[in-house]
């Protein structure tokens, strides 16, 4: 079992996202450590790409701050190699950066380097299953998980194509659209989780989750984990705009992480008895409301 998958084994997982280099690499290191202290089980590290077509305004701005601060794939890997956190790390980026890294062309050099600095999985929002085989092979070669996104519009054969290729966890997109914190949790989340009920892979829900209460609802709806990006990136942006110290922002991130992880645990608490009856296997839960 990959360490990413293990992170979902005992209790619902909390997966925070941030854009590395926002606003600079040193701050990112402190923020990542704060997220771990706050209860992160897996951390998604965004490697900024100039055309982030799946991102809403919050993460677009983070990408701009990071790129303007001079972040590059090479600096990203250097930063990751300095991290001392114990939780598994997943790199989230767009395919062109993976494809173009290194001299030989193709995804292998990027994956090799990612593995070397301790990254254990990849999420690539602009790479559907149809185009993913070269990357899937490279990930197999270097022992990385490849996470795929399942959208509310994903049905039928497409689900199978994804199921055949996904590892680590499946990223369940809670709603249509781009990333960004929302005021409510989509009812489509439940429908999506229902469609994946039979999948033997942890299901982590993302897009729009902002509060501990959202996290509780999503876990109660049957998810194995919650992914939170924009709500955390907002804290970084506000701190940056207000001239707050990195330590202050890190404290807020840690507190927010506790809230979200707490909500996730609470969502599972309601289910604790049923969970025990089913042997607590992630992904094997019966469908429930």
């Amino acid at each position: 079992m990959s360490t990413i998958r293990e992170a979902f084994a005992d209790e619902p997982a909390f997966l925070p996202y941030l854009a590395v280099g926002d606003p600079d690499a040193e701050a990112s290191v402190e923020y990542i450590e704060a997220l771990e202290r706050g209860g992160a089980d897996v951390i998604e590290l965004g490697l900024p790409f100039s055309e982030p077509i799946a991102e809403g305004p919050t993460i677009q701005s983070a990408v701009v701050r990071s790129l303007e601060g001079g972040m590059t794939p090479t600096k990203f890997f250097e930063t990751v190699s300095r991290l001392t956190v114990d939780v598994p790390l997943v790199c989230m980026t767009y395919y062109n950066l993976i494809y173009r890294f290194g001299e030989e062309g193709g995804p292998k050099p990027f994956v090799e380097r990612a593995a070397a600095v301790g990254i254990e999985g990849l999420v690539v929002p602009d790479l559907p299953a149809e185009e993913a085989d070269p990357l899937r092979e490279a990930c197999d070669t270097y022992g990385l998980d490849l996470v795929f996104i399942v959208a509310p519009t994903t049905r039928g054969e497409r689900l199978e194509r994804i199921m055949d290729r996904v590892s680590g966890y499946v990223y369940v997109q809670a709603r249509l659209g781009v990333t960004g914190a929302r005021a409510d949790v989509s009812t489509r989340t439940t429908e999506s989780l229902d469609r994946l009920a039979e999948w033997d892979v942890p299901k982590a829900v993302g897009f729009g989750i902002k509060t501990g209460e959202h996290a509780r609802e999503v876990i109660a709806a049957g998810a194995d984990g919650v992914i939170v990006g924009s709500a955390l990136v907002d804290l970084i942006a506000e701190g940056h705009n207000d001239g707050d110290s990195t330590a202050e922002v890190a404290d807020r991130l840690e507190a927010k992480a506790r809230e979200l992880k707490g909500g996730a645990l609470e969502g599972a608490g309601i289910e604790a008895e049923v969970e025990a009856e089913n042997g607590g296997e992630p992904g094997a839960r019966p469908e429930r409301k």
């Binding site: 999985g121 092979e137 022992g143 055949d164």
Partner: peptide
């Protein structure tokens, strides 16, 4: 080696170099 959600594709796992034709 990473694990698949279901029915790991044995052919691909057995020979990671062989699948590049699948892009075409």
């Amino acid at each position: 080696m990473s694990e698949r959600a279901s029915k790991p594709d044995e052919e691909r796992n057995a020979d990671p170099g062989s699948g590049s034709a699948s892009t075409a």
